[in-house]
Amino acid sequence: MREQRIILVGFCLILSGLGLVGFQTDFQHFFPGKEWKDDQGVHINAHGGGFLIHEDIYYWFGEHKIAGKEGNKAHVGVRVYSSKDLYNWKNEGVALEVHDDPNSLLVKGCVIERPKVIYNEKTKKFVMWFHHELKGQGYDAALTGVAVSDQVTGPYAYLESVNPNAGIWPENYPDSLKSKPVNLDEMEAWSAEWRAAVVDGIFLRRDFDRGQMARDMTLFVDDDGKAYHFFSSENNQTLHVAELSEDYLSHTGRYTRVLPGQQNEAPAIFKKEGKYYMFSSGLTGWKPNPGKSAVADHPLGPWTPLGNPTRGTEEEMNTTFWSQSTAVIPVLGKEDAFIFVGDRWTPENPIDGKYIFLPVQFEDSKPIIRWQDQWDLSFFDQNESTDE
């Protein structure tokens, strides 16, 4: 009997190696920065991720990467995973596929980044927005794309990609600046004159007619059901926050400039005790940099900088633990418990990128993150903020 069991176990291991039986995982902790396998034994492939909680299940949407130099372009699309506990994730397949049709803007080889999905209670639709760059055009298009589905895991039907708010001024942009000339050719880039012009909205005015640039992004749905689109605009120098339409499929035309000229990318938003908090990063390409944080009384602002949220060694603080923010996850069943999510990019082999999940704490009324080699959700039961 014992020999039969050994043979059976060995046979199952062989089948598992051949991919003929499922790979079982049973994680009970987070291991930030380590390889994280899904239910099939494959490293989770959902970079620049967004998270949706629907019917008490977490859904993780992210960029599907491939190996090699072309890996940061979209050759598959947006993948989605599901979890009931945040530790163990089931591969639910490709939520949004790219196409072979060269006439489609969503053709293979374009760029799809930071996909985020929200649920519309009124229409009962799931809506995905993402940063979209056109095939063969680098990062010149600076579009934002939208897709919709009846099912949380998809498939999502691509609708369009746009430069938002064409012909519309931000509601916090003064009339005195609207007629100023767009004389970029007369300035030296990064000079004091250029920086002052950026703060005054020279790129905003340049793009007024065609619509604004929309790169790194996130979505946020407030308690009243209104949804907001946060995106890096104006040559990545200034964030825009735009209100979405009632069906979440377009913009209403109501938007604001946030932290002008302060170079915020990778926004991640959460709400605690009536205040809105943002994690973001600076501009260093794929290289990590010191993180940023800010607070506001309304998604449209004004936003007040709170400084670097990272606590640790100088190197850790200068690199946000070698990561870039992408999302903040509220934890089901725990009041005011949030998880910071960051990507560790590996542009030379994008499929190998890792993730960090770290608990958000508060110190002197500021959101902060500290490194944990290993942790679990009981952290929130045992640790309290150090607000004074």
Results as ranks from 00 to 15, higher is better:
Gly353Thr: 14
Gln40His: 14
Trp194Asp: 09
Asp209Phe: 01
Val117Cys: 06
Gly342Tyr: 05
Ala157Met: 13
Ala142Pro: 07
Gly49Asp: 04
Trp60Pro: 00
Ser385Gly: 15
Lys292Arg: 08
Leu15Lys: 06
Gly41Asp: 07
Ala337Glu: 10
Ala157His: 12
Trp89His: 04
Ser325Lys: 06
Ser323Cys: 11
Phe270Lys: 07
Lys65Ile: 11
Tyr59Ser: 00
Glu113Ala: 03
His251Phe: 11
Ser280Met: 02
Glu160Tyr: 11
Phe23Asn: 14
Leu332Ser: 02
Thr123Leu: 02
Pro302Met: 12
Lys178Met: 03
Trp190Tyr: 02
Glu348Arg: 15
Asp373Cys: 05
Pro170Leu: 12
Val111His: 11
Pro102His: 00
Val198His: 10
Gln24Pro: 09
Trp345Arg: 05
Lys65Leu: 05
Ile339Val: 13
Lys90Trp: 00
Leu184Lys: 15
Pro32His: 14
Ala268Asn: 08
Asp216Met: 06
Gly145Pro: 12
Gln324Arg: 04
Ile168Ala: 07
Gly211Lys: 08
Ser16Pro: 04
Pro102Asp: 01
Ile6Asp: 15
Gly48Ile: 06
Asp216Asn: 09
Leu239Phe: 01
Gly145His: 12
Asp376His: 01
Asp56Leu: 00
Asn120Tyr: 01
Asn308Val: 15
Ser280Asn: 09
Asp175Trp: 14
Lys180Leu: 09
Ile6Ala: 12
Glu384Gly: 13
Leu105Ile: 12
Gly225Ser: 02
Ser233Asp: 12
Cys110Trp: 05
His29Asn: 09
Met187Glu: 10
Pro350Thr: 08
Ser161His: 10
Ile339Arg: 04
Asp185Leu: 05
Ala242Glu: 03
Val76Glu: 11
Ala74Pro: 09
Val76Ala: 12
Phe279Gly: 13
Trp375Tyr: 14
Ala196Gln: 15
Val198Asn: 10
Gly211Ala: 08
Gly145Trp: 04
Asn72Thr: 12
Val78Asn: 00
Asp38Val: 03
Pro174Trp: 10
Gly301Asp: 03
Tyr173Pro: 13
Phe379Arg: 01
Lys354Gln: 10
Thr326His: 10
Gly291Val: 02
Ile369Gly: 07
Phe30Asn: 05
Asp222Leu: 02
Asp373Trp: 05
Val78Leu: 01
His64Cys: 07
His54Asp: 04
Trp322Glu: 13
Glu160Lys: 10
